[in-house]
């Protein structure tokens, strides 16, 4: 995914800050990656390179770590992050159907971010409210009983947000890709 304008500087500054706050040991590698992801929302390749340099470990080690753990993401999260629960109770009440409905409506697959970065779609395992199954987490708010009709309602609200946004910020943001 291409970096947006100003993103490169942001990444460099963030990695520098986090490396400054932690002692540069191998043991701190995962906490460092977590902190960078928390700030940036994901782990861009550039950030991984810089962390590798800082800790003097091969970049491929970091890459294999990041791909091993589910928590780390390589693509930027969308403006709206949707996570569909695929835990036991949710699966049994049709979580897979819910996930498919989101995929269909967003035109992306699970694990992906839409090109305009408006949406990202992921699966999670049990978020602990199985009573409300099937459950989806919309921008950190847990929603219960998410049937395909409910998916349409949620999508409608999120689409509206896009239109507001476009009017508000028309101009600079569009096409502001990094050189």
């Amino acid at each position: 995914m291409q970096l947006l304008k100003g993103e490169k500087e942001e990444i460099l500054a963030c990695v520098k800050e986090v490396l400054g706050e932690n002692s540069k040991t191998h043991e701190n590698l995962i906490p460092i990656l977590q902190q960078v992801q928390k700030k940036l929302g994901y782990l861009p390749a550039l950030a991984m390179d810089k962390i590798a340099e800082g800790l003097k470990v091969p970049a491929v080690d970091i890459f294999s770590l990041v791909t091993f753990y589910n928590q780390f993401r390589l693509n930027p999260p969308g403006k709206h992050e949707i996570k569909v629960c695929m835990g036991t109770a949710c699966y049994m009440t049709g979580g897979d159907i819910t996930l498919e409905s989101f995929e269909r409506r967003m035109g992306i697959n699970e694990g992906e971010t839409s090109l305009d970065r408006h949406y990202s779609l992921d699966r999670v395992a049990c978020v602990g409210c199985c009573t409300l199954a099937p459950v989806a987490v919309i921008d950190d708010e847990v929603e219960g009983k998410v049937t395909p009709t409910r998916v349409d309602g949620i999508m409608l609200a999120l689409e509206e947000d896009r239109e507001d946004n476009a009017i508000e910020k028309s101009g600079p943001k569009v096409g502001a890709e990094d050189e």
């Binding site: 978020v127 602990g128 409210c129 199985c130 009573t131 409300l132 847990v142 929603e143 219960g144």
Partner: peptide
């Protein structure tokens, strides 16, 4: 206000 309470 455990996780599921919050969700509800």
């Amino acid at each position: 206000t455990a996780t599921c309470g919050v969700a509800a």
